[in-house]
Amino acid sequence: MSILTLSFTTVLVLIALSISKTQKIHLEKDIIIGVIRATLQLSLIGIVLTYIFKVDNWIITTVILLLMIFNASQIAAKRGGQIKDTKKTAYVSIFLGASITIAILVITGAISYSPSEVIPVSGMIVGNSMVALGLTFKQLNNNFKNKYQEVEIKLALGATEKTASIDLIRDAIRTGMQPSVDSMQTLGIVQLPGMMTGLILAGQSPVLAIRYQIMVTFMLISTVSIATFSGALITYKRYFNARKQLNRSMI
C-alpha cells in the first residue's frame, strides 16, 4: 500500500465527519483531532521503532518495556478512585504479569528477546492488563462500598481481613478477567484480531498468522490473570487498618 493509496482512505474519515455534522452529533472537532493524533503518533512511533529495531539493544528494549508499563499503570490507576497507591500497585501488577509471560515466551523459544518481537508482544499484553486491572480496581471499590456491612459482620465473627473480603476480591478479579475470557471464546468466529489481520494483510500466510495469534491469546490471558490477581490482593488491604478494622474513609 502506497502513501498515495493511504491518503485516499481519508474518504472514510469524511464519511464519519459528514454523519457527525448532518446528525448534529458534534464530534467533528474530536474526530479531526483524533485523526491527526493517530496519524502523527503512529508515524512517530514508526520512526522510533525502525530505529530501535535497527539498534537491537536489550537495554533499550527493556527501558521501552518499562515505559509502556509505566504509562499503562498511570491509566489503570485512574479507575481506582480514592484507593491509596494504585499507581504503584498497578505498576507492580502489570510488571509481574508482563515479565512472567515474556519470560515464559522467551524460555520456550516462542519469541526471542529482540525489540521487533518483544515490543509488539508487550504492547498487547500491557494494554490488555491495563484495561483488566482498571476494571478490577473499579469493581473492588464498588464491592467494598456496597458490601461493607457483610465485611464488617465477618470481621465481628473473628474473620481475618482477607477472609472477610475474599468474595469481594474474587468478584473483582473475575470482572477484570471476564472480557479477555469472553474474547478468547469468540476468536475466529466474531472477530479476527488486529495482529492477525495485520500479518495477513502484510503478506504472511494465514497459518503462520494464526499460530502467532494463538500464542498471543495465551499470553494475554496469562498476563491479565497475573495482573488482576496481584492488583486485587495488594489493593484489598487498603480497606483495612492495622487494627483489622474497616478503613471508613475508603467506603
Binding site: L155, A156, L157, G158, A159, T160, R243, K244, Q245
Partner: peptide
C-alpha cells in the same frame, strides 16, 4: 490483644 481473638 489480637482483634480477631477479642472478637471471638
Amino acid at each position: 490483644i489480637d482483634p480477631i481473638d477479642l472478637r471471638r
